[in-house]
């Protein structure tokens, strides 16, 4: 069987992006399950030194395509190089971050290679499959698992006949895990020119203003998250007050972000970030499965909701049937009085 590949993204500071590190960790496990190697692809303007960021994750081979024209990312050169490498190496599985880069690149690659791609997976597993009609048996397929369709269902998608089996995954869904500090990584320099022609550089970047990540709710131990039920941007201030008091961060459901109550970077769930804090306080969040996909592994969950039947209450350790505006000030008050 062939190997597992991860397309790695670079940050503005030219280090390997967090989402790619997480995917390498997941890729390592999938490769172990299959008994194959883990290979990474990095395309950009960086030195070979960058391999040291990937080796502790258990990456066996790094395909490095280096040129100043490859950074910042543009679609066509990256797609051509990735397709070129994949045609030669025939990966079994290829993983991409579900970022503005991965979601731009992976479909283009999947289309060129005519293979299946599943977006925003919340879980990836290896499993078998029997085709119902023909009885044909498939072993060791990639189960690409994601909530679908308004979140009422969880779908398991497979690509029985096409390779690579491709998936994108959001930042925070997979856990970063170090394998070894002296894992041996082989760096293969890619002769990118063989895959490129001038037409690949048709899109010209004129200007870029990318800010360093300001909000990082993923690493917070305490998250106070608000949903559409919070009601307004104004009411969200209460959540910030509680988060400040507890030393936590504010998160939000997609509905709250779509309503403009808070920034997109705070969105938790399938199309936002996945968090696993010690304490998750869900305020006015009904708890669609896409949201729960991003927070269900929180150690302790408190739900504050005026709807006693909100789905999120089913996974909460503490359910407070009440109005967010009434409950939060009391929580702040009793936190202060008890912590003194």
């Amino acid at each position: 069987m062939n190997n597992v590949f991860v397309y790695c993204e670079l940050t503005e500071e030219n280090s390997v992006a967090e989402v790619s590190i997480e995917l390498c960790s997941k890729g390592r496990k999938l490769a172990n399950d299959l008994g194959v190697k883990l290979e990474a692809v990095l395309i950009g303007n960086m030195s070979e030194e960058i391999a040291s960021q990937l080796s502790p994750l258990g990456v066996d081979v790094l395909h490095l395509a280096q040129d100043k024209r490859f950074s910042p990312y543009t679609t066509m050169p990256h797609a051509a190089i990735v397709c070129g490498i994949f045609r030669k190496e025939q990966p079994e599985i290829a993983l991409f971050g579900a970022t503005s880069v991965g979601r731009d690149l992976a479909p283009r690659v999947a289309s060129e290679l005519r293979c299946g791609l599943t977006a925003d997976c919340t879980s990836l597993e290896i499993g078998n499959h029997t085709e119902a009609k023909t009885g044909k048996e498939y072993t060791n397929l990639l189960y690409q698992i994601r909530p679908a369709f308004g979140g009422n269902i969880i779908a398991t998608i497979i690509n029985p006949d096409t390779r690579p089996q491709m998936a994108t995954v959001r930042e925070g869904v997979m856990k970063k895990e170090m394998v070894s500090n002296n894992y041996n990584i082989e760096v293969k320099k890619v002769d990118a020119e063989q895959f490129l022609n001038p037409a690949h550089f048709a899109v010209e970047i004129i200007e870029r203003h990318i800010e360093a990540q300001k909000i990082n709710i993923k690493n917070s131990n305490i998250i106070v998250a608000g949903g559409y039920g919070v009601g307004s941007r104004e009411n969200f201030k209460l959540l910030f007050e509680l988060a400040d008091a507890l030393g936590g961060e504010v998160g939000a459901s997609r509905a709250a972000v779509d309503a403009g109550y808070v920034e997109h970077e705070r969105q938790i769930g399938q199309t936002g970030v996945t968090v696993r804090p010690k304490l998750y306080i869900a305020c006015g969040i009904s708890g669609a499965v896409q949201h729960r996909a991003g927070m269900a592994e929180s150690a302790t969950i408190i739900s504050i909701n005026n709807d006693p039947n909100a789905p999120i209450n089913n996974i909460a350790d503490y359910v407070i049937n009440g109005e967010v505006q009434d409950v939060i000030p009391k929580m702040i008050k009793y936190y202060r009085s008890n912590s003194k």
């Binding site: 005519r114 006949d161 009440g322």
Partner: peptide, 27 residues
């Protein structure tokens, strides 16, 4: 190339929750 292998309705693995009304004593 992608096939839907399985569709599952979302099953709540319900935790045993402590339910409160949000009064001062409880909080």
């Amino acid at each position: 190339p992608t096939k839907v292998k399985k569709i599952e309705n979302v099953v709540f693995t319900a935790k045993e929750s402590l339910v409160m009304e949000g009064n001062d004593e409880e909080l």
